[in-house]
Design a binder for these strands. Structure first.
Length: 318
DNA sequence: AAAGAAAGCAACCGCGTGGCT
DNA sequence: AAGCCACGCGGTTGCTTTCTT
């Protein structure tokens, strides 16, 4: 399908934003709210493309952003979430109020990767770096994603599985995806930063039992959101360097049924297996024929968030 | 003190997706 | 059904800052 350019590039600024541009964008969004990014630049008197405005707002100007160092708790949460979700930064960010996907992505690549490597854990697989993948039986071939991720490095030893344990994880049913991202040694890492940076590629966003302490019987709920989140740009806005406004991270707002990645509508709930498209597998915990009318009344504590249902919409699996 | 290397991070880019016409 | 549009995501780039020699 055709696609028009997002903006008239010839007449747009690029690069770092100036204070004046920031102020214009902030003022406009305070008045008109978010959205209509395509038309926003013109309306706000900015020589930027809408995309750029959106990014600037979401990643930097939103007043509900935390602008500080990541805490140890956040680190660990990111690691656990990454082990479950892979490079789904927006999903991970959805569990970290005040943090953006971009920020988490950068933080992962600059800090957490190294932290895990120092612990002897492969950040791509969340398994010990010297763990022999041959010890783990494989059950399926690589997904297209895997293939794409690996075909530019013939040395990669790709062994994968799609066995996913959700409902009643037991040792016997838990296999591991192992996409060994061969990151040579630190020496190489240090000697060729640019090359390495491009090598720090996407991990495989597959779900596996990498964190034994996590209950993988997922019931992911809509992220907590405050009552006063909706309208709100107005009264308690604080400048980017300030801490809090009274409106909420967009990803914490109630998610609309039938979102862009959903094929199930009507506000129903499905199990995580269904959200991954394996609704007929034994891992599927849906009890009804329509995967989407699951009786998720129990509620599980996913990462400490007690919820009533799995709302797959909050994880927006692609 | 200077230069180069490494690290950090904001911003850009391309593309997938759902909604609308 | 097809095409367009807007949005959002993940990966990448490149500039700035910090560290090392």
């Amino acid at each position: 399908m055709g696609r028009s350019p997002c903006c008239e590039k010839a007449h747009t600024n690029k690069g770092a934003w100036t204070k004046e541009e920031d102020d214009r964008l902030i003022a406009y969004i305070r008045t008109h709210g978010e959205g209509c990014w395509r038309s926003l630049p013109k309306a706000a008197g900015l020589l930027r493309c809408g995309k750029s405005c959106r990014l600037r707002w979401i990643n930097y100007l939103r007043p509900d952003l935390k602008r500080g160092n990541f805490t140890e708790e956040e680190d660990e949460l990111i690691i656990k979430l990454h082990s479950l979700l892979g490079n789904k930064w927006s999903l991970i960010a959805g569990r970290l109020p005040g943090r953006t996907d971009n920020e988490i992505k950068n933080y992962w690549n600059t800090h957490i990767r190294r932290k895990l490597l120092n612990r002897g854990i492969d950040p791509a697989t969340h398994r010990p770096v010297n763990d022999n993948p041959n010890n783990h039986p494989t059950t399926t071939t690589a997904t297209p994603t895997n293939i794409n991720n690996n075909n530019n490095n013939s040395s990669l030893d790709v062994t994968t599985t799609t066995t996913i344990s959700f409902a009643n994880p037991t040792p016997t049913t838990t296999h591991h995806l192992v996409k060994e991202e061969i990151l040579d040694d630190e020496t190489k890492h240090n000697s060729d930063r640019v090359t390495d940076r491009r090598k720090i590629k996407n991990t495989v966003p597959e779900i596996l039992e990498r964190c034994p302490d996590l209950n993988l019987e997922l019931r992911i709920s809509p992220p907590h959101h405050h009552q006063n989140n909706s309208s709100s740009l107005s009264s308690s806005y604080i400048h980017p360097q300030g801490q809090h406004g009274n409106y909420h991270h967009h990803q914490h707002q109630p998610l609309k049924t039938g979102g862009r990645s959903s094929s199930v509508s009507g506000g129903t709930t499905i199990c995580f297996a269904c959200s991954l498209g394996i609704e007929n597998s034994k891992e599927c915990s849906c009890t009804t024929s329509l995967h989407g009318t699951s009786s998720s009344s129990t509620g599980y504590d996913f990462l400490g968030l007690k919820t009533g249902v799995l709302d797959y919409r909050s994880i927006k699996m692609k």
